[in-house]
Amino acid sequence: MEILQIVIIGIVGTILSISLKKESPQFSLFIGLTTGILIFLFAAEYLKRVIQILSQLAGSAGVNSGYMDIVLKIIGISYIARFGTELCKDAGEGAIASKVDLAGKIFIAVTGAPVILALMEMIQHFI
């Protein structure tokens, strides 16, 4: 089972990161970052399958593909923003983490704006 590999990699990365925390904190952050990237690259294959299934479902349900793209874009932005935020928080830099989080929220709001506008028009159309 692949999940076993992922758990093992996570545990090994955590142990190495903690063991280096005292002497050289920079390297423990590098190890945390690399382990996170490895696990994501491993899971990306399955994520691709999930996204294909989702878009097929959306297509068959007649959802406008533009909205599906926006949903995927928002998921991507939120994932990367969270990746950066958690990393900065691990390193103890709470201020930088909150700024990254703020920027992520702003980009999500900007990406999602067309959907909200379309909704408003639809509502005005009914009233």
Partner: peptide, 22 residues
């Protein structure tokens, strides 16, 4: 799924820490 990059970084970190102390 090459985990040896993590081991490389850990080895480099330990080496640098020891060198630093020396």
């Amino acid at each position: 799924m090459d985990i040896n990059i993590v081991f490389q970084i850990a080895a480099a970190g330990i080496l640098i820490a020891v060198l630093n102390q020396v």
